[in-house]
């Protein structure tokens, strides 16, 4: 009976899973990520490299509205470094005592300052295309980090007969093939502060890790707590089972 129960639950879950697992479009270039699995967690050195890639390249066009500079402390940056990152950008504050709005350097409590003031400004600077906000990018696409990695490394020559319109680029991972984003990364597109060799693949992996952290900053805490909770529940359930056997002994 127990086996029966389990198999039915499994079948139900499988049926439930189909919408979540469905991925349409080209095959993904699946990677091994440090945070996968029950004991998986972020590699903070990698997150710092990823932040460098985002800072030097992505943030020129893409906003990341849900993340604040103070959150960067989690990556292992000191308070002064975080302050310095924030102070690179100006934000409008106010009104002051004179009733006027004024510019000031961003503070750690500010969210990442977007590259464009509004959607129209972003579109006009990008050939009509809107660079999407990256805060939740990894969670907002089927395939998650593997999709974003495949996209970043997916710029190739179009197959014969495929027409790429002016101002667009061919990307084998992108639905339809034509993407408005120019190839953002190449070998040595950044020089890593920690001396890691900046191949295209390395850059893509690092920045996807950073994007995953931006989308799921709670992951480390979630996994660590989950292991404890499930461990506790296994012991508790075993005790319930023992108690059940004991209480039911006189019925059977």
């Amino acid at each position: 009976m127990r086996k029966f129960l389990l198999s039915t639950i499994a079948a139900g879950l499988l049926a439930a899973a189909t919408p979540a697992l469905a991925h349409e479009g080209p095959a993904l270039d699946n990677q091994v990520w440090s945070w996968q699995g029950v004991f998986g967690h972020y590699d903070k050195a990698q997150l710092r490299r990823g932040w460098q890639v985002y800072h030097d390249i992505c943030s020129n066009c893409h906003s990341m509205n849900l993340v604040a500079y103070r959150n960067l402390a989690y990556l292992g940056f000191t308070a002064d470094q975080v302050k310095a990152f924030a102070a690179e950008k100006q934000v409008t504050d106010g009104p002051n005592d004179q009733g006027e709005m004024y510019q000031r350097p961003a503070r750690p409590s500010d969210h990442f300052v977007p590259p464009f003031p509004n959607e129209q400004a972003a579109r006009v600077a990008n050939n009509g295309a809107l660079p999407p906000d990256l805060s939740l990018m990894v969670k907002a696409r089927h395939g998650g980090p593997d999709y974003v990695y495949s996209l970043l490394t997916g710029f190739t020559d179009p197959p014969a007969g495929h027409v790429v319109p002016d101002g667009m680029y061919y990307n084998r991972a992108f639905n339809g093939g034509n993407i408005g984003m120019p190839p953002p990364i190449a070998d040595d597109a950044v020089t890593y502060a920690d001396g890691t060799k900046a191949t295209k693949q390395q850059i893509a992996k690092d920045v996807v890790s950073f994007l995953n952290w931006a989308a799921e900053p709670e992951l480390d805490q979630r996994h660590a707590l989950g292991v404890k909770v499930i461990g506790f529940l296994i012991v508790l359930t075993a005790m319930f089972y023992a108690l059940k056997r004991k209480i039911w002994a006189d019925v059977h």
Binding site: I230, L233, I234, T237, Y241
Partner: peptide, 16 residues
């Protein structure tokens, strides 16, 4: 107690 045992098994699946 039988229900509590079921609750334990179920919570493991749910919280996983």
């Amino acid at each position: 107690i039988k229900d509590l045992y079921g609750v334990g098994v179920f919570l493991i699946v749910y919280l996983a």
